[in-house]
Design a protein around this nucleic acid. Structure first.
Lengths: 264, 264
DNA sequence: GTAATAGTGTCTATCAGACACTATGTC
DNA sequence: GACATAGTGTCTGATAGACACTATTAC
């Protein structure tokens, strides 16, 4: 596709037609819902805000987009690297995708700010480091986070909604993609994979049927020929080890149980 | 969720920390992929640009977001109404959802512009009206549009990619939602519904199996008790009429045939 | 009449899920 | 030894798709 070069005339014409009252200054940020599994529980990365607004509240990691210097995906990857302190190599094992954009008129009390939210699936990562305008950064268990219970950390802006949307996207993605493996080490067992599904879907799955199903989907996992060092935490034989396969979509998909309810 | 009111201090502090070189001015637009069925073919709404850049090229309808005055969804609905000339009532029958955001560094040669793309499914609509910076507006058959063939209209910016992403989203949505009915009149026949699937998926479906499948999915369609005025265009009995049901998701889903290929 | 279509019946291969069972580990 | 777990076998009900068939309509 050919693209005409920028000409000063164009920009001048554009700026002349630009009415600041109709199009006031707007800021663009990326915010990232980074999900990981720690001790078998789903965690999300949060930072404590050191400055107003929402000072002292917890928020998603993120920052302003360097307009014109980076693509949105690059901005998200940059913020992710900055907030987690991950090397470029470790980042390659993290799945990152765009979740959606949020632009309610007064979601930021200072000025119009539109946030492009991203969703990341990561294996167990080291503790994050605080930095920039964050007082602290911490992995936070997802359970109860969006329920509004008394123990909840108060979330800034509309980040509770963004997290809820990210969790729903994650639940759906496990159905038809092999991305559950992104939460695990490069080599993993089928019971470990099942634990990821059970934690994110919030439901116990049948061990035998799950095992057979995973192995029957072409390209989901491939055997390493090895077995785990130890058996299950409470006994049982040592499980076989697998790597992620080359499939990008699961056929047939692993469907969540129950979904008859809540469909209407 | 409590939200502190905007305080002048906050804004001043923010602007003081704002480095224009690091965060140059950025503009935000919404662009809409409006899909409809006309004479049995899938069409997308395009406008011809009357001003540089890409003067004379065709582009998606859209415009600048009125920052701080409207949500992104509202901006998309407003642009859709402006470009199609639809009444508020007619707009209620149009499905509108966010598709994704596009922010490659020099996608607009004038200045950094991030576009929040939306996807709309509409029944057969009247001819659009041109307006604003559009010389013309026209429904354009989708076939061959993204193939880069000789007959293609040259598309501005990255709109060819946005349309391709919208089409892929549409294909997926037909699988697990009843949104194919959004392309049809309030009352429709099963063969008409099948024609929508065949056109968007680009595959012929088995008439008998499709018919039984649609009626077996709870809440997909509900009978009106009436039958169509005429039989098929080339003969056959008159089909029964249905309305869209109350399901928001299809269970079980209507899966596309073939997908074994291209999965890896 | 001819040909195409709407809709139903039927058969088969596949799949999801329930249940049973053995072998192998932890404690 | 007690008990939980990994993995396999088997059965059943649901489903997708192929095929056949009848009735109805346009031309």
């Amino acid at each position: 596709m050919s693209r005409p070069p920028a000409r000063p005339d164009d920009e001048a014409a554009f700026l002349a037609a630009y009415d600041p009252r109709e199009f006031p200054a707007i800021a663009l940020t990326v915010d990232i819902v980074v999900l990981t599994m720690r001790q078998g529980r789903l965690n999300v990365l949060l930072v404590e805000r050191a400055a107003p607004p929402f000072q002292g509240c917890w928020a998603l990691p993120g920052g302003f987009v360097k307009a014109g210097q980076e693509d949105l995906d690059e901005a998200a990857a940059r913020e992710l690297a900055e907030e987690t302190g991950l090397s470029a190599g470790a980042l390659r094992r993290v799945h990152l995708e765009q979740l959606g954009s949020y632009g309610a008129p007064r979601r930021d009390p200072r000025m119009p700010v539109v946030s492009v939210a991203y969703l990341a699936f990561a294996p167990d990562l080291p503790d994050p480091r605080a930095g920039g305008d964050a007082a602290r950064a911490a992995w936070t268990p997802v359970v109860g986070l969006h329920g509004g219970g008394t123990g909840d950390r108060q979330l800034a802006f509309d980040h509770a909604q963004i997290i809820a949307d990210g969790l729903e996207r994650a639940r759906a993605k496990l159905e038809y993609t092999p991305l559950a493996t992104a939460f695990l080490a490069p080599e993993f067992t089928v019971p470990e994979l099942r634990a990821v599904y059970e934690e994110i879907w919030g439901e116990k799955l049948h061990p035998g049927n799950f095992h057979r199903k995973v192995l029957s989907v072409p390209g989901f996992v491939e055997s390493t020929g090895e077995t785990a060092e130890r058996g299950g935490s409470r006994g049982g034989p040592r499980a076989r080890l697998y790597r992620a396969g080359d499939a990008r979509l699961l056929h047939p998909a692993l469907l969540r149980p129950d979904r008859e309810e809540g469909v209407r």
